[in-house]
Design a protein around this nucleic acid. Structure first.
Ligand SMILES: [Mn+2]
Ligand SMILES: [Mn+2]
Ligand SMILES: [Mn+2]
Ligand SMILES: [Mn+2]
Lengths: 141, 141
DNA sequence: TTGTCATTGTAGCCATTGCTACAAATCAAC
DNA sequence: GTTGATTTGTAGCAATGGCTACAATGACAA
């Protein structure tokens, strides 16, 4: 049962998702950190992601080149307008995936962990179905 | 609303998921191909994944070293007992995620694409909730 | 048997994401 | 203002997953 028509397209979409995943997680984290602490330093991101500050530094450099962040040397990290747009979009998507997992009965901790990976692989169509499900459920009660 | 308690653990779990993702997709594809065509050649995998045969060759080498596949030179690719176990487990999980997306109203093509990425980030707890949801819905109608 | 074609392997390149070790800059406290 | 801790940068390494170009192998038909 359940066919599973896995075509070449599926894998290339997953590879594409992974190629944007780092940028998405970083701008989202920068956005949140600025909101929470007023500024975002590389060390904050290293702590949040659980990686070394060197890894953060290198990735921030690329995001700077790509026009998503502004990272003057030895100064806090800011988002460009484009970066802010991506952050807002990504955070909304992440929250929706999280809320959906909660809605189907997953516990908060598991939902937090799973949604961190799932968020990058959810198309707008699937996202729309998740949103519809949440709204139906909240109307029922 | 919706908190989103993204801790360090979430990101390291996602990184861990990605480190096993390639092995999972490959053993699943090998399993399916053997089932469908009687044997699996590297060229079959290159076609399925949409990558070059060199990429396949290198990855198969590593899976061989890791004890998941048997890959004698210039011969078809087989699965070790451990590889077969992983393939069966992964396929079941993949099918469940796919069926769940269908159950919440996602169209077949989108479900096929999205599930290819999502499958690797779904914990057993979330999987259990998806299974329960499918069973409830099939009981209702 | 020989030649051709499909398949696989190898060499060598690149980008990404991770690390340790060490150097430089900044900040705060004294 | 000097010192000391925090923060950031840089050098250099490894594993993974992509690629092209070219070499070798194997299978099959002529
Ligand atoms: Mn994420
Ligand atoms: Mn992923
Ligand atoms: Mn799969
Ligand atoms: Mn997959």
């Amino acid at each position: 049962m359940s066919k599973l028509p896995s075509t070449k397209d599926s894998y290339s979409r997953t590879r594409q998702d992974h190629s944007t995943e780092t940028a998405e997680d970083y701008v989202e984290a920068i956005f949140d950190t600025i909101e929470a602490k007023g500024a975002c330093r590389a060390v904050d991101l290293a702590e949040q992601f659980g990686v070394s500050h060197v890894t953060v530094s290198k990735i921030i450099s690329r995001l700077d080149t790509d026009g998503l962040v502004e990272a003057p040397a030895y100064k806090p990290i800011g988002l460009t307008p484009e970066g802010k747009l991506m952050a807002a979009r990504v955070r909304k998507r992440h929250e929706l995936v999280y809320s959906f997992l909660i809605a189907i009965g997953v516990d908060a901790k598991t939902a937090a962990i799973d949604s961190e990976g799932i968020e990058h692989h959810v198309s707008t169509k699937t996202l729309a179905r998740m949103r519809a499900f949440i709204e139906e459920r909240s109307a029922d009660r």
